[in-house]
Design a protein around this nucleic acid. Structure first.
Lengths: 178, 178
DNA sequence: ATCTATGCAAAGTTTTTGCAGCACG
DNA sequence: CGTGCTGCAAAAACTTTGCATAGAT
């Protein structure tokens, strides 16, 4: 078959962000406003810790787990407790500013999600590589199933599990030794 | 503490199985043969524990977690250790006779999967109800993405998260009190 | 007879919880 | 000023691991 283009969406994100330095800052401001609105709406307090966590998340690219986020903040001198990280992540996920993934291993992975194109994941079960992709048909399925089963669908998660080209090549090399 | 996810779709499976008493037994035999072939293929031992676990799984309907499976076996007098349950589940998942799901909470849920139609899940984030659905478009996406990204896709998991009709009705009733 | 799988319990991970004190509103 | 949030650490929840022994080949 034809040459397969390995377009990781992560790369695209970084590229578009790098091309315009202020874009990130603007986005952060927008997200902060949305978060503020959500907090006020639910009668929750606007604490510095919550905003610090939000900033750290939007400064990151790609997936991260709680420990990575916690360590990243510590390194930057933004000390918060794990309990607060968990608490705030729940708030952000609830609001949809952050999305939470569970890829196979029992380690929750998070990702900023405001203003980024809805995407899904292909996971290599051998090397645990994660590649993103987009398919408009999923939106259609989501809408149709919601109507059919009378659910108000808020978000979805589609993961394809398989073996990547690299791992298949390695396996082939091993089975045909010199 | 935790009420587990109630499986309302289970009725579907039980109904089709109940309509023909021997169907289940035949299926179990088929699955055992496949499992045996897989064990031989990998040079693994055919132990009674492994078959006992396979039987227990195929006697169940709907989703279950490791603890439920373990407890169910204990109740039937089939004593096996948790370590063996985990070990065997891994084998079965690897072979595709059982599928593993991670719905939001970090508690792995399993389900028998041989001879059952490939299906996906809608989860209510309020009451944790799980409903199954089927959409042929997913298969197309799977194939296309596999070719595009050069992955050999083995299985997928699509979860739609939202609020079910019952929970929306309850919420509406609360906001318009008598 | 050999070598792997089991069982048990202990250790490992990740997440949740309880309580004292600080801070937002 | 009062309630709710934070921080800390202890514990809970789920899974993995190590070692002695039973059992499949």
């Amino acid at each position: 078959m034809g040459g397969s283009s390995e377009t990781s969406y992560a790369a695209k994100h970084t590229a578009s962000a790098a091309s315009q330095g202020t874009l990130n800052t603007d986005k952060l401001e927008e997200v902060k406003k949305l978060f503020t609105a959500h907090l006020e709406n639910k009668g929750l307090r606007k604490t510095g810790e919550r905003y610090a966590i939000l900033e750290e998340i939007y400064a990151r690219s790609g997936h991260f787990d709680v420990e990575e986020l916690y360590a990243g903040m510590k390194e930057r001198g933004l000390q918060v407790s794990r309990a607060t990280v968990y608490n705030t992540l729940d708030l952000l996920v609830e609001q949809g500013l952050v999305s939470k993934h569970q890829f196979g291993r029992n380690l929750a992975q998070y990702e900023k999600s405001y203003g980024y194109r809805q995407h899904d994941h292909v996971i290599c079960t051998e090397c645990h590589k994660v590649v993103e992709f987009c398919d408009p048909r999923i939106h259609g399925i989501q809408t149709m199933v919601g109507e059919l089963l009378n659910f108000h669908i808020l978000h979805h998660s589609l993961n394809l599990y398989g073996i990547c080209g690299d791992c298949r090549a390695q396996a082939a090399a091993r089975s045909i030794p010199a």
